[in-house]
């Protein structure tokens, strides 16, 4: 049935009564009027009962479906934060010493004189989560196959997540803002713990505690391009749509990866696979680009990735084949490739 068809007046009346009876002020008089309506025609009460049935079914959905719908349709109005212009002009370029450590953690830390910053790069291997503290006491959990550059100066603590995912518990310092750059986005802490993830051009920022201010670097001239997100909110930047979407995510869910679970709600399969590959012993490749657009909601255990991949054809129209250098997902419609 399409919506441009004529609406059934009984159905519409039943829906109107359904909301009226649920309203806080529905008193005896409203109930009497409703009873009179149900007495007019037996189809009226039948239609009303069908409203009840659907509403109950939708009110008792499983957690994942419920969150999927909330995410898809509930928008939080972004709150512009006009007073944040000052934090954009970065301190003058400092002499940068880049230290790259692969698969290991940098232990020591060098203090430089004022206005001189040092850059340290942290990188984790496939299937390796890392946890460490920065010199100011800020705690970092770094996801697998992720890369983090840290540059502290007297004026600002700058961190860039150039690949993968990281979670920060920031020691707040008004004099020295903590700023994370991830893709095109900048996240500035306002007393906070938050998670950032970069998958190509796509960025998600989930706040688990406190607040952050998020800005698109390319639009920094206009203050209204900054928005504040609070604990429980997730901000996603989709390069294709080129817009920020604010929705909700339980803090425990945002950092589930720290406990070997990757949780996704309504994310394109391509993004899911790219993140799964940060944990997969055997990389998964999507052969047909049209599969990337399928959306997935659910949990993947990083210790059972093969099982998950094996079960994919049961939910998606795709084929899984094992090849020498990994697993390939292909569209069965493109046969004889």
């Amino acid at each position: 049935m399409r919506f441009n068809e004529q609406q059934d007046p009984v159905l519409r009346a039943a829906a109107d009564w359904w909301v009226r009876l649920r309203a806080a002020g529905a008193d005896g008089e409203v109930i009497e009027q409703w009873l009179a309506w149900t007495g007019e025609d037996e189809r009226n009460l039948q239609a009303f009962e069908r409203m009840n049935e659907l509403a109950e079914r939708l009110g008792t959905l499983d957690k994942v479906s419920r969150q999927g719908l909330i995410r898809a349709f509930v928008r939080f109005a972004p709150t512009p934060v006009p007073a944040l212009r000052r934090w954009f002009p970065l301190a003058a370029a400092a002499s940068i010493a880049a230290v790259v450590l692969s698969g290991a953690l940098y232990i020591g830390w060098t203090h430089f004189a004022a206005d001189v910053a040092t850059q340290v790069v942290y990188q984790s291997g496939v299937a390796q989560n890392r946890e460490f503290s920065l010199p100011d006491g800020t705690k970092v959990a770094l996801g697998a196959a992720s890369r983090l550059s840290v540059k502290y100066s007297n004026a600002q603590r700058s961190v860039e997540v150039s690949d993968g995912e990281a979670y920060f518990e920031v020691v707040h310092d008004n004099q020295r803002p903590f700023v994370v750059t991830v893709g095109n986005m900048t996240v500035r802490d306002i007393g906070t713990a938050f998670d950032v993830r970069r998958t190509g051009g796509r960025v998600t920022i989930a706040v688990t505690q406190g607040r952050v201010a998020i800005a698109d670097q390319r639009l920094q001239a206009r203050p209204h391009n900054t928005l504040e997100a609070i604990a429980g909110q997730r901000v996603s930047y989709d390069p294709d749509a080129s817009r920020l979407l604010v929705d909700i995510e339980a803090p425990a869910q945002a950092t589930a990866w720290r406990h070997n679970r990757l949780e996704f709600i309504d994310e394109p399969l391509g993004v899911v696979i790219a993140n799964l590959n940060r944990y997969a012993g055997r990389p998964v490749r999507v052969a047909d680009a049209d599969l990337n657009a399928l959306t997935y909601t659910g949990t993947i255990r990083t210790d059972a990735i093969d099982d998950w991949v094996g079960a994919l054809p049961q939910v998606f129209p795709l084929r899984v084949s094992k090849e020498a250098n990994g697993v390939v997902l292909s569209d069965p419609k493109h046969a004889f490739r």
Binding site: L61, D62, K63, V64, S65, A252, Q253, A256, H259, R261, E263, Y296, T297, G298, T299, I300, R301, A304, D307, W308, A311, L312, Q314, V315, F316
Partner: peptide, 14 residues
């Protein structure tokens, strides 16, 4: 944790 670990557990709800 969320209790759906495999995509097929999730299919009916979808």
């Amino acid at each position: 944790p969320m209790d759906e670990y495999r995509p097929d557990h999730h299919a009916m709800a979808v």
